[in-house]
Computed example of a mutant assay.
Amino acid sequence: MKRLIFTIIICLAASTTFAQTNSDSTHTSADSGRKKHVRVKLGVGDDAPVVAVNQPDTAYHAHKAPGFSFGVTFSRIDLGLATLVDHGSFTLSPQNQFLSYRQWKTSNVGFDVVQFGYRFNSAFKIYVSGGFDWTLIRLRRDITIQRNTPVLTYTEDDIHYSKNRFSSSYLRIPLSFYYRSHEDDRGNYFRVVAGPEIGVLLNGRVKQISEENGKQKFNDDYHFTRLRKGAFVRVGYGIMGIYAKYYFSDMFENSPAQNGLRNFSFGLTLGF
């Protein structure tokens, strides 16, 4: 996962540099093709004559035509914290105490790689996209979540894990309603994106590191919900913003003791 985060940061830096280059080029074109009228007073006093002088208009005027679009992308990169919500509470109930986790090391990472949408005007568009989303829970206790069990089950271990991570990966498919304000003098603008999201389970994983066993990885579905439903909102200025996501589906299925346990994530979002 560290390699993935580093790759995201490098790709984002490259895309930001490319976008800045294009922005500079566009501003130059706009400056050379537009004029504005400036009123200049010749002399001092109220009776001084005033004349109109044409000067280049340095403001950037962006107008995007309505229409459909489809393509590969690398955007809406989420880097945040994940929180478990147990029947509306941030405190885990007794039957879920084995999932006690380290809040600042329990994270959510995701990004989109393809999108299809329709732009109504320069300010509003709607699109559906596809990408990937990970929830990485850093467990406090020295336990091992068991594979291939009728319900979510764990065992207490006699060894200490320097890392005990319980994670899920999903294919995410959000439907986004996008609004942006007019651009300011720097070409940046305020934007809001919100909508529903569904996720299709790809895999569950337990990753453990200990002196006795070294690094171990175990893959299974671990009763993670196969089709989850939720909603999201992103708010930002320029390329950076904040996001929040809440899933109305339980985190686990076919495991009655975990009914009502859900996932809430929030953090920074880039490139949206």
Rank of each mutant, 00 (worst) to 15 (best):
138 R>G: 03
206 V>F: 02
118 Y>H: 08
5 I>V: 15
153 T>F: 00
99 L>Y: 00
205 R>D: 07
13 A>E: 00
144 T>P: 02
27 H>I: 07
82 A>D: 06
58 T>M: 12
73 T>P: 05
59 A>T: 11
55 Q>T: 12
203 N>M: 13
15 S>G: 07
76 R>C: 03
216 Q>G: 03
2 K>T: 10
22 N>I: 11
45 G>E: 00
199 G>F: 07
139 L>T: 03
191 R>V: 05
25 S>L: 13
121 N>P: 00
89 S>V: 00
163 K>T: 13
79 L>R: 03
94 P>G: 03
264 F>A: 10
61 H>P: 05
128 V>L: 09
242 I>P: 05
22 N>H: 13
208 Q>A: 10
106 T>D: 00
198 I>G: 15
13 A>N: 01
168 S>E: 09
86 D>R: 00
68 F>P: 08
240 M>R: 06
160 H>P: 05
250 D>N: 14
56 P>F: 13
251 M>K: 01
20 Q>S: 10
61 H>A: 10
53 V>I: 14
114 V>W: 12
85 V>C: 01
37 H>K: 13
3 R>L: 09
118 Y>I: 05
201 L>C: 00
259 N>D: 14
137 I>Y: 08
98 F>K: 03
210 S>Y: 10
142 D>I: 04
86 D>Y: 03
58 T>I: 11
76 R>S: 11
9 I>V: 13
135 T>V: 10
162 S>H: 07
176 S>K: 08
161 Y>W: 15
47 D>V: 09
154 Y>F: 15
110 G>C: 04
140 R>Q: 14
200 V>P: 04
32 S>K: 10
100 S>R: 10
153 T>S: 15
128 V>D: 02
173 I>R: 02
244 A>G: 13
176 S>T: 11
263 N>P: 01
110 G>R: 02
187 G>I: 05
73 T>W: 04
17 T>K: 09
256 P>K: 07
212 E>I: 09
17 T>G: 10
62 A>N: 11
17 T>S: 14
266 F>E: 06
163 K>R: 12
172 R>H: 14
83 T>C: 01
174 P>G: 05
154 Y>L: 03
83 T>F: 03
199 G>I: 04
76 R>T: 10
3 R>C: 05
135 T>S: 12
164 N>M: 12
39 R>A: 14
152 L>P: 00
107 S>D: 08
271 G>I: 06
70 F>S: 07
90 F>Y: 13
151 V>D: 11
32 S>M: 06
1 M>H: 11
178 Y>M: 04
89 S>G: 00
117 G>D: 06
64 K>F: 12
227 L>I: 14
218 F>P: 02
165 R>A: 07
267 G>T: 01
157 D>V: 07
38 V>F: 10
248 F>I: 05
213 N>V: 06
58 T>F: 15
135 T>W: 08
252 F>Q: 04
77 I>M: 09
251 M>F: 01
216 Q>W: 02
49 P>Y: 11
179 Y>Q: 06
226 R>L: 11
207 K>P: 00
92 L>Y: 01
199 G>Y: 08
203 N>P: 05
